[in-house]
Write a protein that binds this DNA or RNA. Sequence first.
DNA 1: ATATATAGGCACCTTATGGATAGTGAAGAA
DNA 2: TTCTTCACTATCCATAAGGTGCCTATATAT
Lengths: 132, 132
Amino acid sequence: MDSEENSCLGYDAFRRTCPSHTVLEMLASKWVYLVVCALRKGRQRNGALARKLEGITPKMLTQTLRVLERDGLVRRQVYPVIPPRVEYELTDLGQNLAGLLTQIRSWAEQHAPEIKDARARASIANEDELAA
Amino acid sequence: MDSEENSCLGYDAFRRTCPSHTVLEMLASKWVYLVVCALRKGRQRNGALARKLEGITPKMLTQTLRVLERDGLVRRQVYPVIPPRVEYELTDLGQNLAGLLTQIRSWAEQHAPEIKDARARASIANEDELAA
DNA sequence: ATATATAGGCACCTTATGGATAGTGAAGAA
DNA sequence: TTCTTCACTATCCATAAGGTGCCTATATAT
């Protein structure tokens, strides 16, 4: 039992010391989702990404791109010109992941109304409880 | 342009005020991934989940389950017996999501070695940089 | 009588993260 | 001359994540 889909190759994300667990931790970020999705259309400059990702601060954008670069999902290309020019693009591994993350994003967009309703119901239930 | 796959229904996760953006924020959690994956096999009790999710504290488990319940992904069933008995199971919406999240988990497990290598290379590159 | 299991709640604390703000440096425009 | 662009870097602060310990209440086991 318990062998259905766990640890297909000895890796099991449920174990906190497993490398796949740290990969999951890295993926568990709103900005990782969005940056990877944004890069799916091809290489882009820092400024273009910043404009696309509404609300991201330069710090978070750089930080997120550095993590993705470190993990081999994004390639960073610097042109030594003035003013500076830097371009980012997904590696093959990144492209591979982008397919999945785009599905998650689509899911979020498709089911946002249901979840909004569920939250509203929960909030009303909470008020009733407090009133009782 | 820019109409390829964005805002299929007026929802666009890139906009920070869009409901789908908050859904993505909710999904961006290591424990949400793992709890949903763990519940995929059917209804389970708090204790069983705690044993399966290595390293989770009772507080985080409860907190995560509450969020999932609020958003309509998990159903909570309380049996008024002593000692207390509570069971959690995925709703249809939760089941739907679980398929995607399980893919992410599998991806993390399959590509953990590559990412581990990429991190090691990045760390060596960093040391070289510091030495130079 | 004491301990355990059960599923939490509650309060306190430390650390990590997110996000805001300001600065850097060089070129080109006003 | 001051301003802007570009791609950052550094610093601070508020919030959040996460850890620890103690509390409930009862049936069962020791």
